[in-house]
């Protein structure tokens, strides 16, 4: 028999991807040039302003910096705020 939930009132539980893979919303993709990206260049934890300003929390503060493209909505704030101009927004279509 089909399993039924026992909730008598509406209460949600937390999970990643409530709206699905929001990476699908993107028409521009952020691409990091690790030759310019400060943590990669200095080879130590530094800068991370992209992480700081990401409204989605999809950027990882490692070396190199990584962006989770499954959920990145492609807003482009990271590219705008990168002091080294290491991130460019590239068309998803191209």
């Amino acid at each position: 028999m089909e399993k039924k939930d026992k909730n008598i009132s509406a209460m949600s539980t937390p999970a990643i991807g409530e709206a699905g893979f929001t990476g699908d919303w993107r028409d521009m993709r952020p691409v990091i040039n690790h030759g310019k990206c400060i943590p990669s260049v200095k080879n130590k934890p530094a800068c991370y302003l992209c992480w700081l300003y990401c409204p989605e929390g999809v950027i990882k503060t490692g070396i190199p910096v990584e962006i989770d493209l499954n959920y990145c909505k492609g807003c482009g704030i990271c590219a705008e705020e990168c002091p080294a101009k290491a991130i460019t927004m590239v068309s998803e279509g191209g």
């Binding site: 399993k3 039924k4 939930d5 509406a10 949600s12 937390p14 999970a15």
Partner: peptide
Amino acid sequence: YNINPVLFPGMRKNSAGILCDGYMEM
């Protein structure tokens, strides 16, 4: 929990894969 969120007309699965009530079932 997030109590009393928005419900759509249809039923929807939770993260455990169980099909949960829609507004009408509630």
